[in-house]
Structures are given as C-alpha cells and as structure tokens.
Design a protein around this nucleic acid. Structure first.
Lengths: 198, 198
DNA sequence: CCTACCGATCGGTAGG
DNA sequence: CCTACCGATCGGTAGG
C-alpha cells in the first residue's frame, strides 16, 4: 500500500534529516509519486509525523517486553549483560528507529515538543518499572549489592543513554571496546563485595 | 563591535534551532540590522558557522584545563566529584555552548560532518589524556581499585555523555537526583574493595 | 494519483 | 550598513 510506503520513507528521512529538514518533494520522489499525491493519503506533513512516531513507539514497547520475557529465568548478571547488549544491538541495527528517538528526544520540533515528551516519559516509566523490580529481586537473592531502587535504575539509564550518544560518534571497533568497558565497570558498581566479578 | 554581536546571536540561534533551522533574516533582526548587512562582516552563512564553532571550542578547552589545575591537590574521590559537578554545571549554565555541542555531535549538518568530527575528537583526546593520568595516580596511591586506564576513561566518558543527554529531558529536580545517583554508583565502580564508600 | 499553480521564505547579490 | 532584488525551494491547494 502506498500509505505504508510513505510512512517507511518518512521514517527514514525524519530519522536522518529531521522534521524540518525533510522536504515533502524528496519524500514523494522516494515513494515514487508526485508531491501533491501525498495529500491523498495524509492531511499534511504534521499528520505524517505523528503516524511515524506512533509506529516507532509501538514497535519499541513491543520489543522491550518481548526481550524481558526471554531472559527472566537467567541469573541477574546474565540478565544485566543481555539487557545492555539488547539496547546496544538496537542502537546499531535499527538505525532508523534509534536515530529518530535520539533526535526527537533531544531536538524536538518546537511545535511537537510537549506531545513528544509525554510519549517518551511513558516509555521510560514502563522501562524503569521493569528494571526496578528486577533489581529488587537480585538484591534479595544476594546476586548484587544493596542499592536503592531509583539509584540503580538511574545508573542503568545513564550508561545506556551515554552509549546511545556515543554510538553516533565512534567507529564500530572503538564503540564496541567502550561497550565492553562500560558493561564491566557498571557491573562493578552492582556486584556483591565479597565475590568480585572482574 | 557588530561582528561580535553577530557571533553571539548566531551562537544562540544555532544552539537552539540548528544550522539549517536558523534563518539569516532572524539573525539580522536579533542583531538589529538588515540581512544584507551581515554580508559586510562574513562571506556567507558557512563562515559564520565556523566562527561560532571555533569560539565555542576555544572556550571549552580553556575551561577544561583551568578546572583541572584547581583541584590537583585534592584526594581522588573529591577530584572525581568535582569533575562530575563541573561538567554538570556546564550542561546547566552555559546552555548555549552545551546545546551547540550536543547538536553538532549528534546531528551535524551534512556538509560539516567531517570538520566537526575532527574538532570533537581533538577535544576528547585532550580530556582522555588528563583523566587517564589521574586514574593511574589514584591506583598507585590506593585511592581506587585496580582498573585498566582505557576502561576507566570509557566509563567516565559514558556517564558524562549519559547525563549530558538526560539534562535535556528531565526537569531540574529529577535531573539533580539522577546526577547524585550516578555519581554514587560510578564511585562504587572505582572505589577500593575494603573500604566501601556508600 | 497528476498537472499546474499559490504565497512565503530561503541564502545570496547588485549597487549605492 | 541600506534598498531592492534574484532564483530556488518550501508546504499546501485547485481541479481534474
């Protein structure tokens, strides 16, 4: 369907050039139609924008809970590494989605600022709730050191955000080295005192 | 001088609206002259861009080495907290500079990508070299746990990058809570095993 | 889904 | 530092 094709190409362009940086003429060319024809499918550029954002958001929420289900039987340390790797993998392979997220988080088009913020906080709350429960369980089983739930969650969020940024300015090899370093160091912050990890 | 005024206002606009998002007509209006008059001071928009970037870069380098000098006599743990706070302070107060940095790191205008990357890596190398020496000294004096230099540097960079991003999407109070959490947890990753910090 | 067009705005120039 | 203008491109519409 043409409508889907428009959304796919719009995702690509918004992700790489931003909202204002994307011309409908270029979008039309990628889709293989004339600019005016886009208006048979969408009311205006803004409507395309929200359709793209909603699509990306749904996809992420689904992926998140799918990923969590897969590993709930593993020991915490492995869950931790898995979660880090999953996010890193996401930064790498679904460049379009991750990039769109990056852009809209940090530099939302002025007019859509409020709406975007709401969507992002919604996502984060869901994520935080999952992590906090996970940490509590790991503390009780002695798999990690005592830590306040919010503090642990804040730390994990922060290193993920850091890697999120760094992916866009290091080459692949350097980035991979940094991911391993950060995983090891973050683990040291959580690890029980007696049995030192690495 | 009008030229300085142009640069000041251009810094503000590039920082808040990006390069392509800044119209020379708006810049002129802020400066208090007509658009065409800008061309008596600069060859074109691109020349304004590089003048702004160079100014911001020089300012950062100067601030970095000034800050480091101030604290070299303190114990590592305090140096560590100071360095974190200094960066956070920078994110907060010089919103223009930090925001420009954020933008140009993550979403450089296509044409200036290469030039910007070079400048950023230059800055980072300087920063990394300072941190690595600092870590080595702290390991020798037993103030922190044994850690590979690059690994430690990568960790510090990552949490700073994470906070860098997060500043733009939390409110002040929430952000401050996160800064404290991340400082405490990062310190746990570096702290000696015997004497637990917090 | 197209041709043909709109008013507005962009970066930049001529000429003073 | 200004008035007056340029060609190109923007999002969007009329009418089929």
């Amino acid at each position: 369907m043409s409508k889907d094709k428009i959304l796919t190409e719009a995702l690509y362009l918004f992700s790489n050039k931003g909202y204002e940086g994307t011309a409908l003429s270029e979008l039309a060319e990628r889709v293989g139609m004339k600019k005016a024809s886009i208006y048979s499918h969408f009311k205006n550029k803004e409507e395309i924008f929200w359709a793209v954002i909603d699509g990306a958001y749904q996809e992420e929420i689904a992926k998140l809970s799918r990923g969590m289900k897969d590993v709930e039987h593993l020991p915490f340390r492995e869950r931790f590494h898995f979660m880090m790797d999953q996010h890193v993998q996401f930064y790498k392979e679904k460049d379009v989605n991750a990039n769109l997220w990056r852009r809209m988080t940090m530099f939302p088009p002025e007019a859509f600022k409020e709406g975007l913020k709401a969507k992002l906080l919604e996502y984060e709350e869901e994520f935080n709730e999952m992590i906090k429960m996970d940490l509590d369980a790991a503390i009780h089983s002695g798999e990690i050191r005592e830590v306040d739930g919010e503090t642990g969650v804040a730390m994990i969020n922060c290193v993920l955000d850091g890697l999120f940024v760094e992916y866009s300015y290091y080459d692949e090899a350097e980035f991979n080295k940094r991911v391993e370093a950060v995983k090891a160091m973050t683990w040291r912050a959580f690890a029980p005192i007696e049995k030192e990890g690495d």
